[in-house]
Amino acid sequence: MILYDYVLSASCYKIRLMAALSGQKLELQAVNFHPAREHKSPEMLKLNPGGTLPILRDEDLIMTDSSDMLRHLTRNLPEWQGDDDGWLDFARTLNETLGMARLHDVLGFEVDIDAARKRGVHLLRLLEAHLTEQRFDGMIFLTGDTPTIADIACFPNTALAPDGGVSLDVYPSIRLWMRALRSLPGFIEMPGIHRLHELEAAE
C-alpha cells in the first residue's frame, strides 16, 4: 500500500498511526504540500481530482477519504471496529475547525480563525463530556474498553489543538484518553504529538 503523505498533516498521520498500531507496512510517498502545493499538481490531480491529501493506494484501489482508509486498513481486524460512524463524522468536523485553526496559525492559511477556534472548543467540550461518561462506566476509549478507528480518527486533530491556539489544559478526560492512546504498543509520534516518557517513581 502506498500512502501519499505530508509529514505535518493530521489526516495523513491518522493513516500512518493506524497502520503502525495494526502492524501494517505503508510505503510513504512524500508530497510537497507546503510550500510547493504539489497536491494540486497535474500528476496528483490525476490521482485525486479533489486535490487533497492523504491518498491511499492499494493496488487498483485509490482512496481519498481518511475514514475510508481507516475502514480499509481494519477490514479484517474486528478488534479495531466498534460503533464508529458518528465518531468518523465527528472527526471530520474536528478537521474543519481545530485542523483549520492549526493550518492558519502554522502555515498562514486564510481562515476565520475566531469562528474555527470557537467551534473547535465546542467540539472539545462534547468530546470531554462523552469521555467522562465513558470513565464513569469504566471505559477509557470512545466506544468501549479498547481503541477502535473512532479513536484513531479523532485523536490527531484533538491532540494538535494547541498548534492552533486552543489549549487542552481544561479537559482532564481528553488528556487521559490521549495518554491511553499514546501508551498503545506500536504507537508512533508526529511533530506536536510526543511519545510517552517512561514513568518512573522518584527515589
Binding site: V7, L8, N32, H34, A36, E38, G192
Partner: peptide, 17 residues
C-alpha cells in the same frame, strides 16, 4: 525534494511547541 522539505519541516515543527 519533497522528502528533503518534509524532513526539515518535521524537525522545525518539533521545536515549535
Amino acid at each position: 525534494m519533497a522528502e528533503m522539505v518534509s524532513f526539515q519541516q518535521l524537525i522545525f515543527m518539533q521545536d515549535r511547541s
